[in-house]
Design a protein around this nucleic acid. Structure first.
Lengths: 105, 105
DNA sequence: ACATCATTTAGATATTTAGCTAAATGTAGT
DNA sequence: ACTACATTTAGCTAAATATCTAAATGATGT
């Protein structure tokens, strides 16, 4: 759980997770959303993997990252409960607040 | 919101918040719960203050820290909603003596 | 075999962070 | 005014972090 919070402490990584919520993406696609180099992004992906927040699948020469929602959810819920807060999936199918529909390129 | 997540990325600070949920405490009382020096704790308090997660009130020669639940709640909720998660106050739970409404400084 | 593409690893650097001890500040009591 | 107490500030160090460029790895297509 500490690793999850460390991972969440960086805005780039939080945004990566947010992008992955819409759908899995390759490392390159994700990188295109940020103004930093690919090796830097690769390091961010490694932190997210170490926190078990994402999983990677190699397909040909691309690597597709997928968010592990249950891990994020459990960490958030576990923490929230320490403060008498409850967390539950928002009735799904409905996009979350602030969700935009992203276009693939 | 970034400052809140940075603040939450350290286990000592998360535990400070958890302790403060039960009731406000002085800097010294809080420090007694951790195996680090008081100056180090003081630095942690400063980070929590900067994130607006706690407020400090001087009374005589002690300084009492109080959690700002609404700030924590808003940050958690705001983030959770990006992922289609909803967060709401748990029905009852431990009431928490000082668990009340705070306003900005 | 070779060139190309996607991604990661290596190696370097600058900044931030968590920790310490010692000193300064502010308040209370005598 | 002096002493004691509670807390923060100053100054330091070691470790972690975010970033970069250049090089290595691995897969595809010619």
């Amino acid at each position: 759980m500490n690793r999850v919070f460390k991972a969440l402490s960086d805005p780039t990584r939080r945004e990566v997770l947010r992008l992955l919520r819409k759908s899995p993406m390759t490392a390159g696609e994700l990188s295109d959303h940020f103004p930093v180099s690919k090796p830097t992004m690769s390091a961010h992906f490694a932190v997210l993997r170490e926190a078990d927040l994402v999983e990677a699948e190699r397909n040909g020469r691309t690597i597709t990252y997928r968010i592990k929602m249950s891990v994020l959810e459990d960490a958030l819920l576990g923490f929230a409960q320490l403060f008498g807060l409850d967390l539950h999936p928002d009735e799904d199918g409905a996009p979350g607040v602030g969700d935009a529909v992203e276009e693939s390129r």
